[in-house]
C-alpha cells in the first residue's frame, strides 16, 4: 500500500492505495464520485477525462499514486451551489447530449480547449475533442455548445 493525499473537487483525501489502482477507480469506488464514467478502458473514448493539476487527462491512464499531492477536478466539481457553468448550460441549451455517457469527458476536454483558445473555430473544437467519442454520434450539437460557451465571458 502507498499513502496518497489528493485534493478532489476542493476536498483533500488521505488514503492508502494499491499502486496498481487507476485514478478512475479511486474516484468512483473509493470516493464515490461516479460522475466520472468508465467508457472503453482502452484510452480511446475519453469518457473518464478529468483535470489533473489544471490539464485534461484520461483517468483510466493515470495511477492514483501518480496523483499524490495533486489537485483533481471532476465533472462534479464544476457547478457551484447548483449553479451550472456557462459551458454546462450551453450543453443543456444546445441539446449537446443524448444518452449523456460521454458528456463528463466532453465537458472536461472542452474546458481544456477554452482555456488555451477562448475563441476557437469549429475546426479547432473538433480537433480538441478528437480524443472523446460520442457513441450517439451527437457531435454537431456538442460543437455548437462549445462554440456557444466560447461566446460567453467566463465560459468554462
Amino acid at each position: 500500500m502507498t499513502h496518497i493525499s489528493v485534493k478532489v473537487d476542493g476536498t483533500t483525501y488521505e488514503d492508502d492505495v494499491e499502486p496498481r489502482l487507476l485514478l478512475v477507480h479511486y474516484l468512483r469506488d473509493r470516493l464515490g464520485l461516479t460522475g466520472t464514467p468508465i467508457g472503453c478502458d482502452t484510452s480511446n473514448c475519453g469518457a473518464c477525462t478529468v483535470e489533473l493539476d489544471g490539464v485534461s487527462v484520461k483517468s483510466c491512464s493515470v495511477l492514483a499514486v501518480q496523483a499524490d499531492g495533486s489537485e483533481v477536478t471532476t465533472v462534479e466539481g464544476l457547478a457551484h451551489d447548483g449553479e451550472l457553468t456557462a459551458l454546462q448550460r450551453a450543453f443543456h441549451d444546445k441539446h449537446a447530449l443524448q444518452c449523456g455517457y460521454c458528456t463528463p469527458g466532453m465537458l472536461m476536454a472542452a474546458r481544456d480547449l477554452l482555456r488555451e483558445h477562448p475563441h476557437p473555430t469549429t475546426d479547432e473544437i473538433r480537433h480538441a475533442l478528437e480524443g472523446n467519442l460520442c457513441r450517439c454520434t451527437g457531435y454537431q450539437n456538442i460543437v455548437r455548445a462549445v462554440q456557444a460557451a466560447s461566446e460567453e465571458e467566463v465560459p468554462a
Partner: peptide, 9 residues
Amino acid sequence: VADPAVRHR
C-alpha cells in the same frame, strides 16, 4: 500524436 489529454501526460 493521439489527442490533447494523452499529450498532457
